[in-house]
């Protein structure tokens, strides 16, 4: 598949803004986690921002996404409210899920965000269902599944490709190959090239540098367009790197290490945000000063969102009574 277009100036700036927002939110959550301010753990998206931003740039509010346990970036890129997300991660009643889901379950159905998911591969079948609904609606909606190289080894991945291709569903499969299945380096748990797997189902498969926001944007543009036109599923393998741990708390309880620091340093030199910034400056789309101003604005947004979260009340313990069932006692 070939990209349908290149980003416009405004689209370039939106891409950078989204990536910066994700980075600044994640850095703040990192700090707040280590300061003991968060009740639960967080799985940070730092280093992978180009994927969520590059894909979601092509989506409308009524398109669906399902995400992973590392889902803050997808939530924000799809237009989710940072205040409501951060309040959720603080376990507050103003959280997007009223404090009932936490970091691993941030969802906003009004924006097509079916939700992050604590089960590796858990979003795959759900996305197929949303894609079926989108096909029945026949309004050009698409359903996008973000999942990792770890989830690509779950059986549902094969099942979903089979059903999606068989029924020509408007399904976009985005595999973020971040190098690790939890604590296991990918090559110790994965045979072959994941990007070869869709081809067995005649699903178009594209491999991109997941730290190159423009490459992701272009690949996603083609994949989303393919689905919108009713041509069926497509697959994008975005190779990136998880610069933080599987779980931010792992440094406190993991018995050993599973990678060299030099590997992290190598990938930090390929930072997707620095890379996009450099390109935009080189192409005279913006200046470094303008990026700085954008960053300060985002830092203010993050600061406001955190202050809002911290000042918010905790949910009433009774709130759970209404949540297991609709209009029925649990």
């Amino acid at each position: 598949m070939t990209p349908t277009s290149a980003p416009s100036t405004e689209e370039f700036l939106d891409l950078l803004r989204t990536m910066l927002l994700i980075r600044r939110v994640e850095e703040r959550l990192r700090d707040d986690f280590h300061a003991g301010k968060l009740p639960g753990g967080v799985h940070l998206y730092i280093g992978q921002e180009a994927v969520a931003a590059g894909v979601c740039a092509h989506l409308n509010d009524d398109d669906w996404i399902a995400s992973t346990h590392r889902g803050h970036g997808h939530f924000l890129a799809k237009g989710g409210d940072p205040k409501a997300m951060i309040a959720e991660i603080h376990g507050k009643e103003t959280g997007i899920c009223r404090g009932m889901g936490g970091s691993m379950h941030v969802a906003d159905f009004s924006r097509g965000i079916i939700g992050a998911n604590g089960i590796v591969g858990g979003g795959v079948g759900i996305t197929v269902g949303a894609a079926l609904a989108a096909q029945l609606e026949n309004k050009g909606q698409v359903a996008v599944c973000f999942f990792g190289d770890g989830a690509a080894n779950q059986g549902v991945f094969m099942e979903a490709m089979n059903v999606g291709a068989l029924w020509k569903l408007p399904l976009v499969l985005i595999c973020e190959h971040n190098g690790f299945s939890e604590f296991s380096p990918s090559d110790t748990v994965t045979a072959g090239d994941i990007a070869d797997r869709p081809e067995a189902f005649d699903i178009p498969s594209t491999s991109v540098d997941g730290n190159d926001a423009i490459a992701v944007w272009e690949a996603a543009s083609a994949a989303v367009d393919h689905a919108r036109r009713g041509n069926g599923p497509s697959f994008v393998l975005a190779t990136t790197y998880r610069t933080h741990g599987h779980n931010e708390g792992e440094v406190y309880w993991l018995s050993g290490t599973y990678r060299d620091n030099s590997e992290i340093e190598d990938w930090n030199r390929r930072d997707p945000i620095e890379r996009l910034t450099r390109t935009l400056v080189e192409r005279d789309i913006c200046t470094l000063d303008e990026v700085g101003a954008m960053d300060r604005e985002i830092l203010d947004t993050v600061e406001d969102a955190c202050a809002f979260a911290e000042a918010s009340a905790v949910p009433s313990p009774d709130a759970v009574q209404d949540l297991m069932f609709f209009n029925q006692a649990p």
Binding site: I126, G129, N162
Partner: peptide
Amino acid sequence: CEATLSGMAVGAAAA
């Protein structure tokens, strides 16, 4: 493919 079918039920209902 029951693992996907039960997920699809959730996704289509949510949609």
